[in-house]
Nucleic acid binder design. Structure first.
Length: 504
RNA sequence: GGUCCUGUGGCCGAGUGGCUAGGCAGAGCUCUGCAAAAGCUCCCACAGCGGUUCGAAUCCGCUCGGGACCUCCA
């Protein structure tokens, strides 16, 4: 089998993945800021890295997946009046800050479960790691890479760049930026007088009196800077050097760049080996984001309750939609695209259901009757692993699955002889589809029809309809079918006279 | 302004220089009491203009368009 290769933003190449500790992987993914409701754009990294997580485990690794909750509230750092987002909104909604944070944390967890994302192994909060952050900042000051100014602490980017360029790790290594260029082109911003240099970033901010969220520190009351929490928490739970650091592309600069600088000063090593970044979800070609005022919240998406939505889209449809493209490509949202995903997923899932219901054959077929087809099926299945190993090409795996759909349905409908494929191939097909669809892609049946009573009722109706049809009483048979269709249950006449149903 | 990405058929999207991904939609057919579902077949696109090459969607150049980051952002 091929080796796993991942695209490393740090080297801008696809590299063979090798874990630091054999058999084990440490993965850190930047989690949500729980000052508001999650939107479709947020869903992408968490679904993307859920699949990475699942696939790494599928490969046999023991993975410690750490994803933080940012609940300390970032400030609008430069150019605007310093304000803690969370404390400001708390005043508006007349809630305690921690109450607000809890509310959105719960909502976030709810959404993650809707998407069938596995829980991370550790989900540390920024507020729970203030001490660790302070300790880290102190260390950076002692080492001479940060300075205190008016109760705040700033990281000295220029000094870092000068010293670490010599070690082959200049500031900007991750995002491909050159500090000198940035100094020339960065816009003039207000409130910069505390900083020695405009590229410097805050490690700790002095809290103005109106801030509700504040902590004691050696530099007075304040709150941690934007980037330090991830550095502190990743080092605490994964060590100074860990395997994978993930997040959205918009975090590459400055967030991850700053993490690298801080962590390297503290721990004398580049924190992560592989930096993975997912691309953005766009809407009408524009990034979905707060700044653009074009977000679709997840609750709106699931309920269809938004002017831009023609209908509700279920969590699995969104998951499938995201899987249909490579994680490093932008993905454009539209009703048409989501509806196409909905239909495509339905067809794929029904084929998968048919496949799992294949009746066991009495005898084993060692040799396939249709050698060509047997070969083709095995080739398509084998490629699943190759595609995933090639930087998680879920889109290609799905394409292969769709090529298998006609084979699966053909056998079920008996267009294709049940002995066309060898027993071994059938078993491989069943096992691999299950592994990939359920275990790795994390898709699941959304129909809540595994209810014995409902099934019993439907079987009764099906039997009545069968009798009616046998008597050519099409008035009755059509009535049953049409009225069930009206309430969203579709009856399908099968070729062999049987009937099946699906709930929309 | 700086850095970078990108432009694929009606729509969404894979694409490592040669072997026409896939999905959705559309057309025809098969099956069927009818319908749906399913199956089969069709629909050979790569922004434009040059160049490299035996051969380019894929490499290079230019032009035009779109976007991201540089500021909170997944």
């Amino acid at each position: 089998m091929s080796q796993l290769k991942v695209y490393n933003s740090l080297t801008r190449t696809k590299e063979v993945f090798q874990s630091i500790t054999p058999g084990r992987i440490g993965m850190y993914v930047c989690g949500p800021t729980v000052s508001g409701e999650s939107h479709l754009g947020h869903a992408r990294p968490f679904i993307t890295f859920d699949i990475v997580y699942r696939y790494l485990m599928h490969l046999g690794y023991k993975v410690r997946y750490v994803r933080n909750i940012t609940d300390a509230g970032h400030f609008e750092e430069e150019g605007r009046e310093a304000e803690d987002k969370i404390s400001k909104k708390a005043v508006l909604e007349k809630l305690q800050p921690m109450e607000l944070v809890q509310k959105y944390t719960n909502l976030f967890h709810w959404a993650m479960h809707q998407f069938n994302n596995l829980d991370p192994a550790i989900e540390p909060t920024a507020t729970g790691h203030i001490i660790e952050q302070i300790v880290m900042i102190e260390k950076i000051i002692v080492d001479g890479y940060a300075y205190v100014s008016n109760g705040s602490v700033y990281f000295d980017v220029e000094k870092y760049n000068t010293d670490f360029s010599k070690l082959g790790q200049p500031y900007g290594i991750l995002s491909g930026r050159v500090l000198d260029d940035m100094l020339e082109t960065t816009r003039e911003l207000d409130n910069q007088e505390e900083k020695r240099n405009k590229a410097d970033f805050a490690l700790w901010k002095n809290a103005p009196p109106e801030h509700i969220m504040r902590w004691q520190s050696p530099w007075g009351e304040g709150f941690p800077g934007w980037h330090i929490e991830c550095s502190a928490m990743s080092a605490k739970y994964l060590g100074s050097e860990f395997d994978i650091h993930g997040g959205g592309m918009d975090l590459q600069f400055p967030h991850h760049e700053c993490e690298i600088a801080q962590s390297t000063v503290c721990n004398h090593i580049m924190p992560a080996r592989y930096w993975l970044h997912n691309n953005m979800i766009t809407i009408n070609g524009k990034k979905m984001g707060k700044s653009y005022n074009n977000v679709i919240k997840l609750t709106e998406l699931f309920s269809g309750n938004s002017p831009v939505l023609e209908q509700a889209y279920s969590p699995m449809v969104i998951r499938f939609f995201i899987l249909q493209t490579h994680y490093r490509s932008t993905l454009d949202f539209s009703n048409e695209a989501l509806q196409a995903s909905e239909r495509g997923l339905k067809r794929l899932w029904e084929a998968y259901n048919n496949l799992s219901k294949y009746e066991a054959r009495g005898t084993k077929y060692e040799v396939a009757d249709d050698v060509e087809l047997d070969k083709k099926v095995n080739a398509l299945l084998d490629e699943f692993d190759d595609f995933m190993n090639d930087d998680f090409s879920t889109a290609k795996v799905l394409a292969n699955m769709f090529e298998l759909v006609p084979v699966i349905n053909g056998i079920k409908d008996k267009h294709i002889s049940p002995t066309a494929l060898s027993s071994k191939t059938i078993e491989a097909l069943q096992a691999k589809m299950k592994t990939y669809l359920e275990d790795i892609f994390g898709l699941k049946d959304e129909q809540e029809t595994n209810d014995n009573k409902l099934d019993g009722v439907l079987q009764l109706l099906i039997n009545i309809r069968k009798d009616a049809r046998a008597k050519k009483d099409y008035l009755t048979s059509d009535k049953i079918r049409n009225e069930l269709a009206n309430i969203g249950i579709q009856l399908k006449d099968e070729k062999d006279g049987n009937m099946s149903y699906s709930v929309a």
